[in-house]
């Protein structure tokens, strides 16, 4: 555990908490993509199957359980409790266009051709692109509430901090995983446009509105 890794995990946790607070306080999931939330739930479940096979640490187990349970809770809030506020019409990204290629890629490029390893690889690839339905929704409506912007910033920062963690681990421990590094770089790049808007607009107190 190094400072980048810890900061990344805390940023990830903060993102999830911000999203739950936004939905709970406003009693609304307007502006949030249910498709992205479904993809994240698939990511956590397929990645953390090792919960039942391998014990790493109390921290590791605790965080995995938190990520799985909060993503299920988010989906429950969006599709059951606050269903009426869910913006179906704008959340029109076809997730099979992400699920199928990620799975096929996981079958082709993986560290070992075993069920757990393929599902882990699939989850890494899927996580890299899971935010696309959310970014698509923001681009369709042309704006995002400030708390949604903070959520996206924290979520994007998490993998960027992991990139620093991987650089650190490569030099400090000689540890590296090319699949995670490659997917993590793609994931971070997808947020760059959003990061720019966040820094130039939201941090200056303006609403995140896309240029027409």
């Amino acid at each position: 555990m190094n400072i980048f890794r810890l900061a990344g995990d805390l940023s990830h946790l903060l993102a999830i908490i911000l999203l739950l607070i936004k939905i709970w306080k406003t009693r609304s999931c307007a502006g949030i993509s249910g498709k992205s939330q479904i993809l994240f739930a698939i990511v956590y479940v397929s990645r953390y199957l090792d919960l039942v096979t391998t014990f790493i640490s109390v921290y590791n187990t605790f965080m995995k359980l938190v990520f799985i349970s909060t993503s299920v809770a988010t989906i429950y809030l969006m599709y059951v409790k606050f269903k009426a506020t869910y913006d179906h019409n704008h959340d029109s990204f076809r997730i099979e266009f992400l699920l199928v290629p990620c799975f096929l890629l996981a079958l082709l490029i993986n560290n070992a051709f075993t069920p757990l390893e393929i599902l882990w690889t699939f989850s890494i690839y899927l996580e890299a692109v899971a935010i696309l339905p959310q970014l698509f929704l923001v681009s369709k409506t042309g704006e995002a509430e400030s708390i949604t912007s903070h959520y996206l910033f924290a979520l994007g920062s998490y993998r960027a901090l992991y990139l620093l963690n991987w650089i650190y681990r490569y030099y400090a421990e000689g540890h590296y995983d090319l699949i995670a590094i490659f997917a993590g770089a793609i994931q971070t790049i997808l947020y760059c446009d959003f990061f720019y808007l966040y820094i130039t607009k939201v941090l200056k107190g303006k609403k995140l509105q896309l240029p027409a």
Binding site: A112, W120, I179
Partner: peptide
């Protein structure tokens, strides 16, 4: 550290 196992990252 064969095939990056066990996965200590989240």
């Amino acid at each position: 550290d064969l095939y990056g196992q066990p996965k200590d990252e989240l």
